[in-house]
């Protein structure tokens, strides 16, 4: 992999109103040519704002952002010429056919003639939409629309492809298709900035991952580097019979941390689950169940997970990624 920085983000700050909160604060990172870089964070963490600034849609409040050496504020048109963006929303015209959509967006990227025709054919083939090319998008399923949305982002063979949560609200089959497709692009050497709040996706796809929360980049590195932040810890995931009992159990475990039950690093409750970051699941499981029972709570299911980004996020923020 080349180490040239295609994207340089330095001390990026962005707020939408003069005295409002910062949506992004002091974010700095680089994306190297040919790299797949993921921004992982919960909804509202600042992922889309960061992509919007890099893609010239928003102006930074302060800081510097360069893409392929072009400053996004001083030379936005040069930046737009080298990027492709796949927005979170399906940015398509429902009353046009798939072919017409690709033609329109291709023209907007400055393509025309034989070059455009060839690109359209390629993208339709790539997205397995060739047989539906002449049909209006309004007749497409959600997964097909999502694939067409991706194809539009690829028009003009951009140097940098930005994918903003491309797997939100789609069926598992389409999700798998998109993830495989992103991997293929990665293998072809396309530089990709991928945002997601699914840690599995970031884990599976990325060369490097930036974890963002409340507008701040709280961790940055390869998967292994991030795991090192929490050590080789496991995560216990408990579901209780009693709704609302999770918070009580998490608080109890948290207060016992490093005391009666050795090995509990972090505990939090979310969406009816209790997540417990532990040094060894085997060593702590009995004590955890005992604590729950002592509180009058009954455990319905227990799940033990290997060290993952969820645990990293939990360790860094004290909250689960999906909070």
């Amino acid at each position: 992999m080349e180490t040239t920085a295609l994207v340089e983000v330095q001390s990026l700050y962005k707020r939408y109103t003069p005295n409002g909160l910062y949506a992004v604060a002091d974010v700095s990172f680089e994306i190297h040519t040919g790299e797949l870089f993921s921004l992982l964070g919960p909804n509202g963490a600042g992922k889309t704002t960061t992509i919007s600034v890099i893609s010239t849609l928003l102006q930074p409040t302060s800081g510097a952002v360069r893409v392929a050496g072009h400053d996004v504020q001083r030379n936005p048109m040069a930046v737009r010429n080298v990027i492709g963006v796949v927005p979170q929303e399906l940015a398509l015209y429902d009353d046009l056919t798939a072919h017409e959509n690709l033609r329109f967006w291709g023209e907007m990227r400055g393509l025309h003639g034989a070059e455009l025709a060839q690109e359209i054919a390629e993208k339709l083939e790539l997205m397995e939409l060739a047989d539906r090319a002449k049909e209006r998008v309004s007749t497409f399923s959600g997964g097909m629309k999502r694939r067409l949305n991706l194809a539009v982002g690829l028009l003009g063979r951009p140097k940098l492809l930005m994918l903003d949560e491309p797997t939100v609200a789609i069926d598992p089959q389409s999700r798998r298709y998109i993830l495989d497709w992103v991997k293929k692009l990665r293998e072809q050497g396309v530089t990709i900035l991928y945002t997601t709040h699914y840690m599995e996706e970031a884990q599976e796809l990325s060369d490097r991952i930036g974890i963002i929360d409340h507008g701040k980049l709280i961790a940055l590195g390869t998967f292994d580097e991030l795991i090192q932040l929490v050590g080789q810890h496991e995560t216990l995931r408990l579901r209780l019979l009693q709704e609302g009992g999770g918070a009580e159990l998490a608080a109890a475990l948290q207060s016992l941390e490093g005391d009666r039950i050795a090995g509990i690093i972090e505990a939090s409750a979310t969406n009816g689950e209790v997540l417990i970051n532990v040094t060894s699941a085997e060593a702590t499981l009995a004590a955890v169940i005992g604590t729950a029972t002592g509180l009058g709570l009954s455990v319905r299911t227990i799940d033990i997970r290997e060290p993952n980004l969820e645990a990293v996020f939990l360790r860094l923020t004290g909250r689960a990624l999906r909070d």
């Binding site: 919007s52 893609s55 010239t56 849609l57 048109m77 737009r80 010429n81 990027i83 963006v85 927005p87 979170q88 929303e89 399906l90 940015a91 398509l92 015209y93 967006w105 907007m108 990227r109 400055g110 539009v152």
Partner: peptide
């Protein structure tokens, strides 16, 4: 609202 305007604005079109 449907996101096509932002997509237009980040295309190399003034």
């Amino acid at each position: 609202q449907r996101g096509t305007l932002p997509r237009l604005l980040i295309s190399p079109t003034s």
